[in-house]
């Protein structure tokens, strides 16, 4: 109970909760904070199939398994993603440890070289294993890294959504994420993002995000997860679709799972 309280207080301090009111008059920051936490389950295990589709319709598919766990501060996740196909990427693994108060730690294990490499985590705009998702898309954008503004309400696929524009708070955040602006459509009923637009450093529309098959994965804690997510790079007309399956939450994953030991385990 004490741990929970401390974690809760930490969240409040980091995201500036204290003093804001809840209900109808949510600030854009409150909405983005709720969005940030809506899929942050205690831990999760899933399988995913990532399909990359180029301009001419040619498809490539990568299958992986993923395990995540929320750290004790209740904010930062730990993630271990292991690729199981195709043959030339099988065994490649990514370990990501988020730090809301600093740069994240990201490592990649390359089975062909039998080597673990630390990646430069501030390059969050870099493509995640050749997909249209960036590392920032996978890890999640830190709420405090952006200034948020509500620009209206829109109905997306029959659901009322807040439309929020987010601007990097500093040039560093802008450069690190490779974005000048994000636009998010956040469902009013559960705060899940169903649509998004990312704008490149020159302000041009760069990528369009869509989420579907949104499921309540943890009823007790009101956690939701989109089972299909899609990112299209509109500048080159390349798309990545990720389908999650066997999504399980609160299975009791041990902290020790997120280790070099498991990163190297093929």
């Amino acid at each position: 109970m004490k741990r929970f309280s401390i974690a809760g207080f930490g969240i409040a301090v980091v995201f500036g909760f204290i003093g804001v009111s809840f209900g109808e008059d949510l600030s854009p920051k409150d909405i983005m904070t709720k969005n940030f936490f809506v899929n942050r389950v205690k831990d999760s295990k899933s399988e995913s199939a990532m399909t990359l589709i180029n301009e001419s319709g040619q498809k490539r598919e990568r299958k992986s398994t993923g395990v995540s766990k929320l750290q004790k501060n209740g904010i930062d996740n730990m993630r271990l993603i292991k690729f199981i196909s195709p043959a030339d990427v099988k065994g490649t693994s990514n370990l990501m440890i988020e730090h809301s108060d600093g740069d994240d730690d990201i490592w990649i294990y390359l089975p062909a070289l039998k080597k673990v490499r630390r990646l430069v985590s501030s390059n969050k705009g870099d493509s995640f294993v050749g997909s249209d998702f960036s590392y920032a898309d996978v890890i999640g954008y830190k709420v405090q890294d952006f200034e948020h503004k509500i620009t209206g309400s829109e109905n997306v696929d029959g659901v009322d959504c807040y439309v929020i524009e987010s601007f990097p708070v500093s040039d560093k955040v802008k450069q690190d994420n490779g974005l000048s602006k994000r636009k998010s459509w956040i469902r009013k009923d559960n705060f899940v993002i169903v649509k998004g637009e990312n704008y490149d450093l020159s302000g041009q529309l760069y990528k369009v995000f869509k989420a579907s098959d949104i499921q309540l994965v943890d009823k007790e804690n009101n956690k939701w997860q989109a089972m299909t997510i899609e990112m299209t790079n509109v500048q080159v007309n390349h798309k990545t679709i990720v389908h999650f399956s066997n999504y399980k939450v609160n299975t009791g994953v041990d902290d020790g799972y997120f280790s070099q030991r498991n990163l190297e385990r093929e």
């Binding site: 390359l110 062909a112 070289l113 039998k114 902290d255 020790g256 997120f258 280790s259 070099q260």
Partner: peptide, 24 residues
């Protein structure tokens, strides 16, 4: 052609002790 192709194994015994997820 690949650098990773060059290595071959050595018949050996390797023992890894994990003091923590970070320290081995």
């Amino acid at each position: 052609p690949e650098e990773g192709d060059r290595k071959t194994g050595v018949t050996s015994l390797k023992y890894d002790y994990y003091f923590s997820p970070e320290l081995t």
